[in-house]
Every structure is written in C-alpha cells, then in structure tokens.
Nucleic acid binder design. Sequence first.
DNA 1: TATTGTTATACTCTATAACTATA
DNA 2: TATAGTTATAGAGTATAACAATA
Lengths: 163, 163
Amino acid sequence: MTDDATASPAMPAHPGFALLLVQLGMEGARQFGERLAPLGVEPRHVGMLARLAANEGRAQQVIGELIGLNPTQMVFLVDELESRGFVERRRNPADRRSYGLYLTPAGKDMLGKVQELAQVHQAELGKSLSESEQDQLTELLRRIARDQGISGQSLPGIPPRRR
Amino acid sequence: MTDDATASPAMPAHPGFALLLVQLGMEGARQFGERLAPLGVEPRHVGMLARLAANEGRAQQVIGELIGLNPTQMVFLVDELESRGFVERRRNPADRRSYGLYLTPAGKDMLGKVQELAQVHQAELGKSLSESEQDQLTELLRRIARDQGISGQSLPGIPPRRR
DNA sequence: TATTGTTATACTCTATAACTATA
DNA sequence: TATAGTTATAGAGTATAACAATA
C-alpha cells in the first residue's frame, strides 16, 4: 500500500459497513478501471479530464494544487493526456513560464464517453437494489461523506495533499 | 495506483453511489490505517492475523493461497509478524519442508485490540447516521457485496489471485 | 523430478531534489 | 532572487525468476 490506503478490520462472518465500504470501493474501482481500458485511458486520466473541464485555461501547477498532485506528477499525467490528444498546453503570453491547459474536442468527447460509462458501471453495481433503495443508499453515503469532509470534487486515487 | 485499484467516475456536483463508495472506501481505509499505527501494525498485518486465526497450523503457502498472496509476499509478511512476536513458524515433522503458522498469545491479544479498534472506527465513520440507518446501510451494502461475489472473507488491499 | 520456503533480480511508482527558462 | 515547468535520482513496493533443502 502506498500510503497504505487499504485496510481490513478483522473479519467476522457478518462484516459491518466499514469493512464493506472498503471492499466495495476497491472492487468498484477495479471494475471501473476495466471498463475504461478499452477506451485507452486509466482512472487517473479520467479524474484529470473532469477537473480540467471545470478549470480550463488555468496553469498546470494551479490545477495540480486543486487535484493534489505535485508538479512532477502533473508533467507525466499531462504528457500522457497530450499524447492521446485529449489535452492541449498553450503558452500564456502574459507569463511565458506557464501553460494554460485546455481540453481538445477529442478530450471532451472522451469525457462524455467516460461519463456514460460511469452510469453503466453504477447501474451494474446497483443491480441488486431497487431504484428507491439506490436513492436511499446514495443519501446515506452522502451524509457520511459530508461529515467526513469528502466533497464531490475529491478525487479518489489521488491522495489529497498531506501535512 | 498499484493495480490501479482506484477510479473516478467523472465528477458531477451530486456524485452517485458508485463514486461515493470509492471515496468513502479509500478514506475509511486511510483512517483505519492511522488508528492502527499506534499499535505498531499496518492494515496488511491485520488481514493476515484474522485469516490466521481461522486457519491455525496450516502451511504458509496454503494460507497464502487463501489470502491471495504469492510465496514471496508471504515470506515478508510472516517475517514482519514473527519479528513483532505475533506469529510463530513451527516445522511440520511429517514434511520438514513446510511450516505451520500459529498465532502467539501476543498475536491473539493484538487481534482482539484490532477488533475493538474496528468497532470504534466504524462508530466514528457512521456517527452521522442513526442506529437504524446504519443497519439499513449495512444491509444494502451486503446485498451489493453478495451479488458482486465479495465474501466477508475477501481481504481488501490484497488483490485476489487473478487468472 | 517436484515442492516448500527463501533469496535475488528487475520493473513500476512515488517522492525529492536538481535543473532551465522566464520573470 | 523567485517561480513554472521539466528532468534526474533515489527509495519503496510488487512481481518474476533463480535457489537450497526436503520429499
């Protein structure tokens, strides 16, 4: 484990919701990653694309701060997205040290596809529950997330800047 | 991420339960790891201890199979637990190539403490919900876990043997 | 020859620090 | 000198393959 983002409260026959959350979170992430693979992107790319869509034109390191990635990590991630044609670096004429990051049309297409995929993924994951049960679940999880300081903008898989 | 067990379905203002599960799973695991730290153990040790308690005396590689760890990983993990005095390797007289693994009294103590900690952890995580809401949540998550083939014995953080 | 456990090796990831070009 | 971005380097983690002892 990296920062050890993995845990296993001891294992009773009927696990509590804390252990279930970890198990389901990891399994869900894994499945989503598999669904993503045919599109030629990985989970980390998706988080970046989504963030970029909301912050077009801002400098690389500024966006890195928002996501919780250091400059080095940003370089590699943006390199990957640029080589795939999803992101464009444009020099800032006012300060030629910095770049503004922009989604290309292909990047926007990809983001749209990914969002569709996310819906399919969630439907598959929740197939055992009725629609109203899914709403219930969502509501309960949102309450926990809110009280744990997890926003809709928090990116899983990208550790928030520590210390 | 490792096997990239992390995902981020694109990020709407009101995230669905699939994204919430990943976010909460990772955050919960992280918090549990922090609670564990003062005891001198890490999440992976805990999963191992729990598995061992249910399989005392079986050979190292047999238990590794159960958990989904290869022989190399088992050596390191058991080394760590042995150096902490929680696990004992005993030669099998019938087949002197293999060891049986046993929890020491200290190991059982530690497992007990960890289980208490897990309860505290879950109480903290669920503090925003009433008791009946927590039961509801647990029930909904169990249904999903069952249909996704996740057993109470599945260890998060230790990828199940693939292929 | 096959199997248990161990050690050695290579590969990936991550984090830190050094470098460049602008300011 | 300070900052944006990049590159280089070192450490941790993981996976594969070679190895010694026993069967």
